[in-house]
């Protein structure tokens, strides 16, 4: 058994932070060992963002922080104090689906749907980055999102359709 540090008292470690998630500010009293993913899911109770590995190896937890896609499982909530975060729940505006959401439905770009929130947030990040030119670029730049159901070809078709309309 490895050496483990002496316990740190919870109160002593607690921070008060503000996360703006989908344009709504949430003030949280939170310990530093809470990841952004767990903060979103268990503390703010926005469960659209998924935990698929908790190790940065699957992309299911992808959210947008200040417009950039990241793995929310590998950052601490306290590190994102003041950040502007978009999760899948904030992608549609006023009940109107984001074009990517509609394209995912139309192209059947998912089966079980578990990786889908991460795929869509990742694809939004991809479009924001503006680096994907070819179909192969989309494939490479969507490779940080695993899909065990194997919907990749449909995901690429959905992203390509929306990209081409931009």
């Amino acid at each position: 058994m490895d050496q483990v540090a002496a316990p740190v008292l919870v109160d002593q470690a607690t921070h008060t932070i503000t996360l703006t998630i989908n344009k709504i500010p949430y003030e949280l009293k939170i310990q530093p060992w809470v990841t952004l993913l767990d903060a979103i899911r268990e503390y703010v109770q926005l469960t659209g963002t998924k935990k698929g590995c908790d190790q940065g190896q699957c992309g299911a937890c992808t959210v947008l922080v200040n417009g950039k896609r990241i793995n929310s499982c590998l950052t601490l909530a306290v590190m994102k104090d003041g950040a502007d975060i978009t999760t899948i729940e904030g992608v549609a505006e006023d009940g109107i689906l984001h074009p990517l959401q509609q394209a995912f439905i139309d192209h059947d770009a998912f089966q079980c749907g578990y990786c889908t929130p991460g795929q869509i947030c990742s694809a939004i990040g991809l479009l924001n980055e503006g680096k994907a030119r070819t179909k192969e670029d989309i494939q490479e730049l969507m490779s940080g999102n695993l899909c065990r159901c194997g919907a990749y070809t449909n995901i690429v078709a959905a992203v390509q359709q929306v990209k081409d309309k931009l």
Binding site: T49, I88, T116
Partner: peptide
């Protein structure tokens, strides 16, 4: 169930 799956 597509709507539910793309919106979280």
């Amino acid at each position: 169930d597509g709507y539910a799956k793309v919106t979280g």
